[in-house]
Design a protein around this nucleic acid. Structure first.
Lengths: 130, 130
DNA sequence: TGGTCTATCGTTAGACA
DNA sequence: ATGTCTAACGATAGACC
């Protein structure tokens, strides 16, 4: 007679979730899943993968703060990630994975540098050459 | 007495696959899965996600050609993707997803432009400002 | 290369801590 | 915001086309 405690995973429609709290939880869980899948692809196939995810805050319903994002980033990036100097139009880079966890070739490092400039809203693209 | 035809999915060790053919198939399948997951995250949570995946060709065992990559890219990008002018150090950008399938804000477009320059091995980063 | 198939494996919704 | 739990869901290895 014990009431069933656990309902198990239920199907969800592929539309933007209404409940902001559920949306936040789902975003966290699924992003973690996405990063794991990417890491697996890296390990199994030796691929190099970069993922940049912007948190959903177009309508201003909610937004993640940088402090809550850093742990995830650092976990996968393997090092401390520079904090954004300012609010990047209510968007936050929440994830950036590099293939193989640590070692990357020059081109990937260049891309990473470019993305970091984007995060910090670099003065102008023209200065990237330095 | 029918012999079992289908073995079903089997566990695989999280190490780089030895068999080049299996690796290629796994890469294709799992990349498709990764893109689908990313797209779901976009739809469910309204996130903006960019994925750049470099095919595994560090050791020169094999490499994907641009022609075999384009279809996947175009499917998710929603438009024709510029072909690389030359071999980008045996690496190919195989996937770039934009959140929401079509509409992106200026910052994402800027990022996309930068990535395209990378693909085409633009003359120099300093010229990106134009 | 991209599609099918199916048993198995991995992910996750929902509720709670 | 991350971790736990469990049943249900979705992804996928391997074989084939």
């Amino acid at each position: 007679m014990a009431t069933r405690i656990n309902k198990g995973s239920q199907r969800v429609d592929m539309v933007k979730m209404k409940n902001a709290r559920n949306l936040q939880v789902t975003f966290s869980k699924r992003l973690a899943g996405l990063l794991k899948k990417a890491l697996e692809l890296c390990m199994l196939c030796g691929a190099k993968i970069i993922i940049v995810a912007f948190s959903p805050s177009d309508n201003g319903d909610f937004s993640f703060g940088p402090t809550s994002i850093s742990p995830s980033v650092e976990r996968f990036l393997g090092r401390k990630f520079p904090q954004p100097n300012n609010d990047v139009h209510n968007q936050q880079i929440v994830a950036l994975i590099e293939g193989g966890i640590c070692e990357l070739n020059t081109k990937l490092r260049n891309l990473e540098g470019i993305l970091e400039m984007e995060i910090n809203r670099g003065p102008s693209l023209g200065e990237l050459g330095r």
